[in-house]
Design a protein around this nucleic acid. Structure first.
Lengths: 105, 105
DNA sequence: CTTTATACCTAGTCTGTCTAGGTATGAGCG
DNA sequence: CGCTCATACCTAGACAGACTAGGTATAAAG
């Protein structure tokens, strides 16, 4: 799976990774690659704007960590983000189920 | 699931419906609604351009049916379309699997 | 001191989905 | 007959998210 078009699912992926443990952007990319066993190898140009968007809409919050050897913006899921995550999970399950129903003639 | 963003999956849905039986656009919309039990309720503005795009790229072919009471453009999956369908099915399975791996921490 | 990995950012392109219109015919009903 | 509704097609343009392709800067490794 090369550069699959993830439109609409990136938010769910990011929230899923970050609800397990707050992390900075670069780490999120690594986690996605690990958890998906290489399937999701997103570029920074995809992930950073998505993080910014999620923060703007109140689903994530961030702070600059000063203890790390290098500057990092660490993101965490807000309460609203948890609610949204639950909804998105249900939406995904419904979507995947409907896809399956259609493609498995 | 209201108007979910299906970007990237519509082709798979259309090919899946049409490989089972050639059909015209309006019928494809009905089939999708039936098979997905209402989850996929696509508008014509989504489906018609997608059918045209698939025909332009050689995955579908069409002809005007003259026996029907009203003009209909009937689409069928080409040989190339069958190949593409198989690939897209595998891609979808990989994608859904990776999604599951990420969201089920 | 050069390279590599880490870590951030964003302007602009691309493209598919959707909105919001349009045309036209057949069927059912009073 | 006229009216409405379902069928059946189409497309221009808006919209927005994913991606490309750049850029900056520091730490570590060699």
């Amino acid at each position: 799976m090369s550069a699959t078009d993830l439109r609409g699912q990136i938010d769910l992926l990011l929230l899923s990774v970050l609800v397990a443990e707050p992390a900075h952007g670069y780490r999120v990319i690594e986690r996605l690659r690990e958890r998906s066993e290489g399937a999701f190898d997103l570029t920074e140009g995809t992930v950073y704007p998505a993080l910014h968007r999620l923060e703007r809409s109140g689903l994530l919050e961030s702070h600059w960590s000063d203890d790390a050897p290098r500057r990092r913006r660490v993101y965490a899921v807000t309460q609203a983000g948890r609610g949204s995550l639950a909804t998105r999970r249900r939406d995904w399950a419904a979507f995947a189920g409907a896809m399956q129903a259609v493609i498995a003639q």
